[in-house]
Simulated scan of single mutants.
Amino acid sequence: MRVPLLSRYRYLQLLLAGIVLGVCMSWLLFLFMFGTIQEKQTRTIEEQQNKIAEMKKTLSIWQEDYKELNKKNQEILTVQKLHIKIVHNKKYQIHETQSIFEAQEAIKEDLHMLLAKDLASIYKNRELIKKIIENKTLRINDRRYRLQIKEMYFYTTITAILELKLAE
């Protein structure tokens, strides 16, 4: 027995050749399209990486400048406000808030020279400030009181929490 010749089945040859040629062309078309898309993706990723690198450099420059400015600003901080609070006024039966308010204003008046001064120099002279406050004698309801510093904070707002004591 013998295998039949393919030359007899010409349409089968054309069909197989068409299939092989179609597969090859579609594969080449797929490779071209996929390669083009991948090339665009790669280019986009490279551009984004370059932008990120530039932004990181810019960010580091801004952060360094910001840190330097903060250091300079902290060196030249000035006092903006004075906040005085007197506590334990109930112990001596002082119920008038007006009297306490006037006492606080008198102390603020004594310390008004500290406003707009450099914070570092004020902190160096904190003992002098404490003596100014503690040597102050107040008259409330015909009694003489002295102040004792309970707490004192130095920043752009000087905060002093004072306690009333009877003067001797």
Rank of each mutant, 00 (worst) to 15 (best):
Y155M: 12
E151H: 13
D65P: 06
N141E: 15
L82Y: 00
Y153F: 10
Q48M: 14
T42C: 07
F34E: 10
R8P: 01
Q98V: 14
M55T: 02
Y11A: 01
D65S: 15
L59T: 11
L15R: 13
F154A: 03
K131L: 07
K130W: 07
E127S: 14
G22K: 06
E163M: 12
R146N: 14
E96W: 01
S60D: 13
K130L: 03
I61R: 07
K130V: 01
I37F: 10
E105C: 08
N135C: 09
I52Y: 06
D65I: 12
K90V: 11
T44A: 15
G35H: 04
K130Q: 08
I86Y: 06
N70I: 06
Y92R: 13
L114E: 05
L21H: 01
L138N: 02
E68I: 14
N50C: 01
N141M: 13
N70G: 04
A53S: 11
R144W: 13
N141K: 15
F30K: 08
Y66M: 06
L119M: 02
A167V: 07
R146I: 14
N73E: 13
K90C: 07
E54P: 08
Q104A: 03
R146A: 13
F30T: 15
L28N: 05
N125P: 09
V79T: 05
A116N: 13
G18W: 01
L15E: 11
E151D: 14
I86K: 02
G22W: 04
L12Q: 13
I133S: 00
K57N: 08
N73P: 00
K72D: 03
I94C: 14
E75R: 13
N73L: 12
A160S: 04
L16T: 01
L28P: 00
I52K: 06
E68T: 12
I52N: 08
M55A: 09
Q74S: 11
C24P: 00
L115T: 04
V23Q: 03
I133N: 00
S60A: 12
E163C: 08
I61Q: 09
